[in-house]
Structure formats: structure tokens, C-alpha cells
């Protein structure tokens, strides 16, 4: 397993499926979302993820939500990922988006063995300060 995997919370939710083939492995959507979310925020130029009302309330309540702003659709072997994010002012969006797509695809494929068919990027805002994450 990729050494990075030890740092990801939620990876213990990966478990074997009881029904059907005893060797089949079902990976939870949440696990893929956390891997993608952490990989995306590591890219230079990404200020943070944009999670909507539920994500905001969760963070106000003090819970760190690593899958915030990530929507995944996991199939048998394929996974499609949508990332909703806020980009730092000055960063070139096409370049940041390409790096995020590559980093997320690599992280998810290495850690889960799933085939990432697409990583769609939704840039919802631009932040102008180091600490701000919600746009202007």
C-alpha cells in the first residue's frame, strides 16, 4: 500500500463484502472522497474545498470534514469524482485544475486500486487572503 495511506482517516472502513465472491472488496464512497479531498488540498493554489450548507454547519460544529466538497460515484471498478473548490488569488486555474486532477487520480488509484475515469473540477470561488476560504 502507498505509505501515504497511513495518514488518511477513514481507510479502516474498507472491508470485504460478505455476499458473492469472498475476495471481492467494496470500498466506501466516503473513503474515496477523503482520499480525493486530502490529495486535492495538497496542491499549491488550492485554498480549500467548498462544501455547501451541510459542510459549513459541520465545520461550525467543530468537526473536521475531510470529504467536504467531494462527490464520488463508485462503480464496480471505476470511479468518477467531482471536486468543488476555492482557488487562491494569483494561481492559474487551468494549471491548478490539471495538477489536482493528476494528483487525485494518482492517489485514488494507488490507494484503492479503482480506475478513475474522470476528475471534474468545479472552481466556485477565489480567495484573496491566506486564511480566507470563501471568495471575495
Amino acid at each position: 500500500m502507498n505509505p501515504k495511506a497511513e495518514g488518511f482517516p477513514g481507510t479502516d472502513r474498507v472491508g470485504e463484502e460478505d455476499a458473492g465472491d469472498a475476495r471481492s472488496l467494496k470500498i466506501s464512497d466516503d473513503v474515496v472522497a477523503v482520499i480525493a479531498g486530502v490529495a486535492a488540498t495538497e496542491v499549491e493554489g488550492v485554498a480549500g474545498m467548498s462544501g455547501g450548507i451541510v459542510g459549513d454547519i459541520t465545520e461550525i460544529l467543530g468537526r473536521k470534514n475531510l470529504s467536504k466538497g467531494v462527490k464520488v460515484e463508485v462503480g464496480e471498478r471505476d470511479v468518477s469524482i467531482d471536486l468543488f473548490m476555492v482557488v487562491k488569488y494569483g494561481a492559474r486555474i487551468p494549471e491548478v485544475a490539471r495538477q489536482v486532477q493528476e494528483r487525485v487520480k494518482e492517489a485514488v488509484e494507488n490507494m484503492t486500486g479503482l480506475n478513475v475515469v474522470e476528475v471534474n473540477i468545479h472552481v466556485q470561488g477565489i480567495t484573496f487572503s491566506q486564511e480566507g476560504k470563501g471568495g471575495d
Binding site: S50, G52, I81, V87, Y89, I93, P94, A97, R98, Q101, E102, K105, E118, V119, N120, I121, H122, V123, Q124, G125, I126, F128, G134, G135, D136
Partner: peptide, 27 residues
């Protein structure tokens, strides 16, 4: 959110990149 639902999109080899018009407006 302050930004609306409209966005400008372009398709890349690894997926679509959508930039919301509210973000461009702030920029």
C-alpha cells in the same frame, strides 16, 4: 454561496473543469 450556478466549462483529458461566473466576477 455568493456565486451562482452558471459556469464556463472546458473539457480536459482527465475531466471537465468548470469555473463559476461568480469567481470570475470577484477576480
Amino acid at each position: 454561496r455568493k456565486y451562482g450556478s452558471k459556469a464556463v466549462a472546458h473539457q480536459g483529458p482527465l475531466g471537465e473543469v468548470r469555473v463559476y461566473l461568480g469567481a470570475i466576477e470577484n477576480l
